[in-house]
Amino acid sequence: MQRKSFDQMPCPIARSLEEVGEWWSILILRDAFYGLARFDQFAQSLGIAPNMLTRRLKGLCEAGLMERRLYEERPPRYEYVLTNKGREFRPVLWTLFAWGNRHLAPEGESVVLADPQTGLPIEPVVVDARTGRPLAKGVRVVAGPAATPRLRARFAPRTGI
């Protein structure tokens, strides 16, 4: 069965999943944030088959999240580094990290996020950049400027209930 593509859907979550929704891709990005850059480092860290790693790295480069750079000419060897777009995924990863620790680690946290100066644990919170208000509650999804008529109808305010 062929996988459905989400790249033409008007939903930002669906489009994001098209770029990073495959679990190997997210784990590769995680390892890149941890400082890994070379094919063999990713392969060793993840225990992933070389052909799958090749496909995932190629996909991340095509999506503009990583960039392939030559670091040795003979024989040619490449490293994979995060682009600006890839680095902007960091808060998503840290939020997923914290959610996993909170809900999926009954044995306790095996790794935690920490402040680099104090070493104290950090709890990521998603906030509105304009107001600084946490987004855990009280957010409504509304149609944006490029919304289709179908999306406008879906997210129109409901009245009379």
Results as ranks from 00 to 15, higher is better:
Asn84Pro: 08
Pro12Thr: 06
Phe33Gly: 06
Thr95Met: 07
Glu72Gly: 05
Ala98Asn: 13
Thr54Val: 01
Arg133Leu: 06
Met9Tyr: 15
Ser110Ala: 13
Ile122Gly: 01
Asn51Ser: 13
Asn51Pro: 00
Ala43Glu: 15
Met9Val: 08
Gln117Phe: 12
Glu109Val: 04
Ala136Cys: 07
Gln2Ser: 10
Glu67Lys: 02
Leu65Tyr: 14
Asp31Ala: 13
Pro76Met: 01
Ala49Thr: 06
Glu88His: 07
Val92Phe: 08
Cys61Tyr: 04
Pro50Lys: 10
Leu151Gln: 13
Arg150Lys: 10
Ser5Lys: 09
Ala136Phe: 08
Arg158Asp: 01
Arg140Pro: 00
Trp23Phe: 03
Arg15His: 07
Ala14Asn: 05
Arg68Glu: 15
Met1Asp: 10
Ala14Leu: 15
Glu88Gly: 00
Ile13Gly: 02
Thr118Gly: 01
Arg150Gly: 08
Ala153Gln: 15
Thr148Glu: 09
Pro149Gly: 07
Ile28Cys: 08
Leu17Asn: 13
Leu151Thr: 01
Ala105Asp: 12
Arg68Val: 06
Leu96Met: 10
Gln8Ser: 14
Ala143Trp: 07
Ile48His: 04
Leu135Arg: 02
Gly47Met: 04
Glu73Cys: 01
Gly86Ile: 06
Gly64Phe: 06
Arg90Gly: 01
Glu88Cys: 06
Asp31Ser: 12
